[in-house]
Each structure stands twice: as structure tokens, then as C-alpha cells.
Simulated assay, not measured.
Amino acid sequence: MKEGESWMKKTAESCMLVATLIATVVFAAAFTVPGSVKQDTGAPNLIRNASFTIFAISDTISLVSSSCSILTFLSILTSRYAEDDFLWSLPLKLLLGLFTLFISIVAMMAVFCTTLFIVFKEGTIVPAVMAVAFAPFPLIMFIIQQNRLILVVVQLISLSNSLFHKTQKGKQLKKQKQL
């Protein structure tokens, strides 16, 4: 249990750091609006532009999902690490944290790509197209690198589930025999 606790805390700390960096970047992006703002009202100049709408929605999704990821990993760090927590609570929190972190990365890449489309809309569109072409690579790398971790956690959940049900059935049989 001590080794599991140490591993879980290190994993949660690392993932929480990444989620915090993403939240910081997309929060800053929300206030440095591409296409600038109108001096008199402060409204974005490109508010009716489809690319700007995609930018705003993607930025919001990235900020919300990275914040959820931070809170999920924080709940792992502040867990009591009892035996029961290792059966369901901690593995499910880890999966939820990794899933929301992945969503935040996807949305962050969408923010980046739409910003390039906004910036380069008047000139050459080649940089924006290149960004869209290469944007999936960090996502693919995340999936490949975290694939084993996700599989191990899912296997542990199913294993603990089967062990827990066998233990519960055994306890129920003992109680029935005693009656």
C-alpha cells in the first residue's frame, strides 16, 4: 500500500502540474483575444467570425477540463489512502483525471489552430494548415505514452471488482450458514 500510495501521489503531482500549465495558458489566451478588441467597447473585433467562435468555445472547454483535472488530481493527493480507496476511488479518480487532462489537451490544440487561422486569414494560410496537420501528434503521443497506465488501472479496477465480489459472496455464504 505504501508503494501504491507513493506511485499514485507522484503520478497525480505530475499530471496536476501539466493540467495547471494548460489552465494558465488557456486562461491567458482568453484575455489576449486574437484580432484585438474595439477601443470604445472592449468587444472583440472578430466576434461574428466562425474561427473566433471556435476559439472561444475551445478555450472554455480547455479551461474547464484542465480545472476539473487539477481538482481530480488534488483529490487524489488529499485522499486518506485506505485499503478500500485502492479498490475503486483512487483508480477511478486517476482515470477521470487522465480523461479530463486529455480533453484539455485536445481543446488547447484546437485553440492554437484556430488562433493561427485568425492571425493568418488575410495572408498565407499555409502556417495554419501546417498547424492543423501537426496538431494530432501531441494527442497521439499522449495516448501512446499513457496507454499502458490506463490499461493497468482498468485491469486493477476489474481485478479488484472480481475479488471484492468473491469476498462479499463468501461473507454472505458464511452468514447464511451461521443462521
Rank of each mutant, 00 (worst) to 15 (best):
E5H: 04
C113Y: 00
N45P: 03
Q145Y: 15
R148G: 08
G170Y: 06
F73V: 00
I105K: 05
K175L: 10
L156P: 05
K171P: 00
F102N: 05
I57P: 01
E3H: 08
I70N: 01
Q145H: 13
L63V: 01
S58K: 01
I61Y: 03
L46P: 00
C68Y: 09
T20S: 13
V132I: 14
K9N: 02
A50W: 07
D85C: 08
S69H: 04
S66L: 09
I22M: 06
V25K: 02
F134K: 12
A107W: 01
S58N: 00
V129I: 15
T124S: 14
F117E: 09
G42T: 09
S75I: 06
A50Q: 09
S75E: 12
E13Y: 05
K93I: 09
K175F: 04
D40E: 15
L87Q: 13
L21D: 05
L96V: 10
L98F: 13
A128G: 14
L95M: 14
Q168P: 02
A131W: 02
K174W: 08
V126C: 03
Q39W: 11
F134D: 11
S51Y: 09
K177F: 10
K9P: 01
A133H: 07
E122S: 14
T20V: 06
V154K: 13
K121Q: 14
D40R: 09
A29K: 00
P127Q: 02
F86G: 00
T32Y: 06
G35A: 03
